[in-house]
Structure formats: structure tokens, C-alpha cells
Simulated assay, not measured.
Amino acid sequence: MFPNDIEHLTSHRSFMNVPTRRGANEAPALACVIGIPFDCGTHPFRVGSREGPDAIRRQSHLLRPFFVDAAGAHANAVDFLRLIDLGNVNCHPGEIEKSYPLIESAIDAIIAASAVPISMGGDGAVTLPQLRAVAKHHPDFVVLHIDAHTDTYAIEGFNTATTFTRAAEEKLLDVERSFHVGARGTTFMDGVLGFGRSLGYNVIPFSEFDADPRACIERIRQRIGTRPVYLCFDMDIFDPSCAPGVCTPEWGGLNAKEGLALLRALAGLNFVAFDVNTVSPAQDIGETTAFLAATVMHECCALAAQTPRLAATRHAS
């Protein structure tokens, strides 16, 4: 079934012009890009992150495969990973009951083929079905959620505000070793940080991270250890001055240099899945946010290449 025959995918121009399949006589892909063009369609005036994957792909063609400063990693992580782009899940925007099984099935197939999924949304609601797929293969996994919002609210239903509430209720992950990092700005209800903590999550608000990033990263590393890690990276962690095209912008976030440095500081964790979401092209300026998201995804490729199990394949080859 994998990698060329996953159901419910649409055709596309690939991320960074990587191949869309591996040949019959070629070694299999170690990682796969996949687009998830879904949003709930319920935001009062910022609907459009369903268009995020295509915008990210367009801007990815500005990227080149070699890192000038590989920081001990592969200079060309894309080549090492034998990266392919599987296209977009054929979602039904606004229809969770139809879309979630399709998303879960696609991510499940990638992981079953021993590859790392690197997905691009879509709004924050696309994360829950991906967590369900990861849980089938890594029952002890943890989440590292980097976002201006916790997406862990004490409300009913399935939407961008309840992704990690439902994940905790479904016991998909080890909440006590999982982190929400970066919450800031305003929200529509009180007590969201406390509620996240009451479910067992480690919550590091932006003010705490900003005061001492190095100490926070060390705390994350110590707590997570060698556990399988799902990295959920919401583009609104960046300040709107460098990432205006997001669903729910909040002033006072990371600049591009700081955000990319944060990603590089996570090298060596046992990543098993990556999820970059919330690019909303309708509100973007010159596809600046899409270009930054493509760069984040390229950094995720570098992180995947540095996971201990994949680094071992480099030494064995």
C-alpha cells in the first residue's frame, strides 16, 4: 500500500521538488511529506488554512537542499532521508467526521512503512487524527507542542481548541511527559493554563520560555528523555511581523531567528512524527508565512535525520 498507493491522496507539485515515489529497486523513504488541507471553517473571519499545504509547497521551491551550517547533522537531510512527497489527503474541509479517518489512515500507512511523517496543515484540528495514528505504533509517545495557544480547553466537541483535551481523554499519549510551550496573548476563556496542567500536561507559557530558553529546553530534554516524540509546531508561535498569515495571530512571539534556533536546539530527541500547521494564505503577505513554514519543515527534516535510530543507519551504511 505504501508509498505509492495510499488511498485518498490528491496530485501535486512536490515539496522542494523531491520525488513523489521511490522506484522498485530503490531503498525506501525514511521520511515522507504529506499535506492535510483541512480547516474547521468556524473562525469568524480567518478561514483558509485548508490552502496551507499548497502555499508551503510553492514557497519550498526557494529552499535549497544543503545547510550551510549543518551543526553536526547531515548537510543534505532531504537526501539522507530519501524524502518523498505523497501529496495531500483528500480532506473535506469543515467535515470532521469524514476527514479525520482519512487523515488517520494516511499517517498510519506512513508509520507502518517505517517512515517518519512530516505533515503540513491545515488548522490545529488536524493534529488529533495524527495523534491517533501515532498511538497505534508508539503507545508510550509524548507530544512537544509549540504554539501560542494550548489547544487544551475545557469545552466540548472537536475543534482547534480541544485537540489535546480530547487526546488526553482518549489516553493517546503520556501527558505527564508532554509539553505545551509558548502560550501568550489573549484567549476567549479564563484558566486555560491551569486546565492544561490539571490534565497532566507540562505547560511553559511564553513569558517563562522567553526569560530563559536554554533552561526550558533542558527541562524538556530531561523530562522527555528517550521517549518517542511527536512535534506539533503551530506557526503562530512566531510574531505576526514575520508570520502574518496564521489563523490566530498573537503579538509578542518569536522572530524567525529565534524560532529556527529553538528547533535546532531540539536535535537528538527521538522524533517519530512532525506536524507543522496553521498557515492561512488568505491572510499572508507575499506568502512570507508559507516560506517560513517551508523552512520549518526543512528544519524538521534535519531533526528527523538526527534521531538516534536514523543516525545509526548513517553509521551502518
Rank of each mutant, 00 (worst) to 15 (best):
E208Y: 14
A304K: 01
T150G: 02
I110Y: 13
T226K: 13
A77L: 02
L310P: 01
A29C: 04
S198P: 04
E299V: 12
G252W: 03
A167W: 15
I146E: 00
R219L: 10
P19S: 02
S317T: 06
T10V: 12
V142P: 01
R227M: 03
F158H: 15
G259D: 00
A215F: 11
L173D: 04
Q283L: 14
C301F: 03
A261K: 15
E95N: 15
V203Q: 00
P244D: 00
V78L: 06
F164K: 05
D147F: 04
G23V: 06
M235D: 07
T289S: 14
S105Q: 13
V276L: 13
D54I: 10
Y230D: 01
E258R: 15
V78F: 06
S49V: 12
L144H: 02
C301K: 01
T150E: 04
V229G: 02
L193K: 04
T288L: 15
F2N: 04
G245N: 06
V78I: 15
E26H: 09
P228H: 01
T313Y: 14
H12Y: 08
H61Y: 10
F141P: 05
G286P: 10
A211T: 11
L292Y: 06
D284Q: 11
E176T: 14
R21M: 08
V229Q: 10
M1G: 12
N277D: 00
P53T: 09
H145Q: 10
A55Y: 07
D190R: 08
F209V: 00
G268S: 00
C300I: 04
E250I: 10
P281M: 11
H138S: 02
L172V: 11
I224M: 08
L310I: 07
A73K: 09
G41Y: 08
C300A: 03
Y153T: 06
D85N: 03
C300F: 03
A115D: 00
K171R: 15
Y201R: 07
Q306H: 14
G72F: 04
D190V: 14
L144M: 00
H8V: 09
P44R: 11
A27Q: 00
A293P: 05
K136M: 05
P228V: 07
D123C: 03
A211M: 11
P249N: 00
N76E: 05
P65G: 02
I34A: 10
D123R: 10
L193E: 09
